[in-house]
Nucleic acid binder design. Structure first.
Length: 114
DNA sequence: AGTCTGACGGTAT
DNA sequence: TATACCGCCAGAC
């Protein structure tokens, strides 16, 4: 919701990420109106550990690199989750990241924007 | 109350 | 092309 806190908005956007798709912190930040607050998005994800409705594993950096993998339990849990959804991950990076990239601002019906 | 860090990104050098 | 630095906001020390 617009009135919700920054991280709460981030959570809402994350929930809209379709299965087998990924997005970047910057894309979410940009969608929220603060393109330079990508760090905040990552910070919100850090707190998202308390919320199982937020698929943080579908959020990577603009390189398609699983920057938050280390926070997913120490193992390649993040990569495993992505691959289980159909997203090929090589090492710590998503293969064909552009192909699986999902932009909240580009996809209609994200929620409060329309 | 002040300071530093943090799952990023873009621009500058 | 690679590296360095700044900006953004919030939380933790």
């Amino acid at each position: 919701m617009e009135n919700a806190g920054f991280f709460e908005r981030v959570y809402e956007v994350c929930r809209q990420i379709p299965e087998g798709r990924v997005t970047s912190y910057g894309a979410i930040a940009r969608y929220l109106g603060s393109p330079q607050s990508a760090r905040m998005v990552g910070w919100a994800m850090n707190a998202s550990h308390n919320i199982d409705d937020v698929p943080a594993h579908r959020v990577v950096n603009r390189n398609g690199l699983l920057s938050g993998k280390s926070h997913f339990g120490g193992s390649d849990a993040m990569a495993q989750l992505l691959q289980a959804e159909g997203v090929p991950v090589e090492g710590n990076q998503i293969v064909n990241f552009e192909k699986y990239f999902w932009d909240p601002a580009k996809e209609p019906g994200v929620g409060f924007r329309q």
